[in-house]
Design a protein around this nucleic acid. Structure first.
Length: 429
DNA sequence: TCTCCGATTAGAC
DNA sequence: CTAACGGTCTAATCGGAGA
């Protein structure tokens, strides 16, 4: 096999990552904010989860609690927006559709990232630039592209593309000579490598490993012994050996959680049950959307752990249904009953939620001649509820009580309109 | 000793 | 005015219980 042929068939994996995704989504509809430092906050306006370049330059850190930085940030002209997930999810779908058209295989990895299999395609730099231009023109979202032989190296290449303006948004690790590859890896700190977080990078540093090149060159058996199989895979991936496959179809969730911190402390059981009904409605919709049923219902509630001066309580209870179910009404009755058992008066509750587990495909329903499974009536009812909520927006059809009581809903003081998913929010009047 | 299971840890985004 | 710190999800590993 000639060298040229080997190059042509070597794996070429691209990672497309949207720049400052949530902030970019907001700016599409607020072009006046292009020069303004902008941050988007997590649910409850709690933490900073997306920052414009200007906000990054002001030293606002990812994940920082907003109340800590708010005073200084606002004095510096930073605009904070509540997160608008309906908008981000819709924009994400548009971006992913554009990317998917251009390659034979792809994996939507997260709301703002997509792996593309470019193996065998030619002129990857031009292709990547074309993709960037198309996504920008059709959605207004800027993206960067990193290319490498493995997912880990594609991630790393994307990191380089984002960080270095000279790459003009595309970086191809595969186009480097082995010496250049080594020089690059020697400049990448380990905490910037996918799969290595804060803790592991400290432990690796204790063994004298600081850069991606250090990790790549160290003894594999030692790594395996000291850090386990995940780290070994990361090392192999850095060496260009693919250990992580492209997941074209997302496997169904094994566990579905719906929970929320409350906007203020909640003391009353009926308010908690009202919140729980909302959580069950969301969890049930997710469950049915992936064609599953659940046998385990787990409910939890807790007080605010950041207030050690207040009485603390954290409790959870679970029940195994005799038959798996996807019926929100049935699940809701159990969830509210469990919650009532968990509840103790006299606490300031800060968060509650439901976890559905023991999830199986609906098609695998066991025939049981004693216990009837979900009756056809309930099934059709749920289908109708999901259809209406899908068509007219979540919350169009509700389980009785769900959201009627106030006091638990999250704080969202600065939420932008749902520009792309709600006619009423269109700023055309 | 082996296996199973729940809890814990670490990470991603 | 004050107080205020996200939500989901997975995989691996660990330690105890039971076979």
């Amino acid at each position: 096999m000639t060298a040229a042929r080997a190059t042509a068939t070597a794996p070429q994996l691209a990672l497309v990552d949207c720049n400052n995704f949530y902030v970019s989504c907001e700016r599409v509809f607020r072009p006046d904010l292009r020069e303004t430092p902008v941050v988007v906050l997590s649910n409850n306006d709690g933490c900073v989860v997306s920052r414009s370049n200007e906000a990054k330059a002001l030293g606002i850190r990812m994940g920082q609690p907003w109340f800590e930085v708010r005073a200084q940030a606002e004095a510096q002209g930073v605009l904070a927006l509540s997160s608008n997930y309906a908008l981000y999810a819709d924009m994400s779908n548009r971006v992913m559709q554009i990317l998917a058209r251009e390659v034979p295989r792809h994996e939507v990895y997260s709301i703002d990232e997509c792996f593309l299999d470019m193996t065998g395609l030619r002129d990857l730099r031009a292709l990547s630039q074309r993709l960037r231009a198309q996504v920008l023109q059709w959605t207004g979202i800027p993206v960067c592209v990193g290319i490498g032989p493995t997912k880990t190296l594609a991630k790393l290449a994307n990191h380089v593309a984002k960080k270095h303006p000279r790459s003009s948004g595309v970086f191809n690790y595969n186009a480097l000579s082995p010496e250049q590859q080594h020089q690059l890896l020697a400049r990448i700190p380990l905490e910037d490598v996918w799969g290595i977080g804060r803790r592991l990078s400290v432990q690796l540093a204790e063994r004298g490993l600081h850069t991606a090149a250090d990790l790549r060159g160290t003894d594999t058996a030692m790594l395996r012994r000291a850090f386990g199989v995940v780290m070994e895979k990361t090392q192999r991936e850095l060496n260009g050996l693919a250990c992580l496959d492209l997941q074209e179809v997302t496997p169904p969730r094994q566990q579905i959680i719906a929970s929320r911190s409350f906007g203020r402390p909640v003391q009353d059981l009926d308010v908690l049950q009202d919140a729980m009904s909302t959580f069950v409605a969301n969890a049930g919709a997710k469950l049915r959307a992936q064609g599953s049923q659940a046998r385990l219902i787990q409910v939890f509630l807790r007080t605010n752990g950041f207030r050690p001066d207040r009485p603390q309580r954290s409790a959870s209870q679970a029940i195994f249904l005799p038959q798996p179910s996807e019926d929100s009404l049935l699940i809701n009755r159990w969830a509210c009953a469990l919650l009532a058992r968990l509840y103790a008066p006299g606490y300031d509750y800060q968060k509650a939620g439901v976890i559905l587990g023991e999830i199986t495909p609906r098609t695998q329903r066991q025939q049981d001649w004693l216990e009837p499974s979900t009756p056809p009536r309930a099934q059709r009812l749920m289908e109708a509820v999901d259809a209406l909520n899908g068509r007219f927006g979540r919350g169009c059809v509700k389980v009785s009580g769900q959201g009627a009581l106030s006091g638990w809903q999250m704080r969202q003081e600065r939420k932008s309109p749902a520009y792309t998913t709600d006619w009423d929010d269109l700023p055309c009047a």
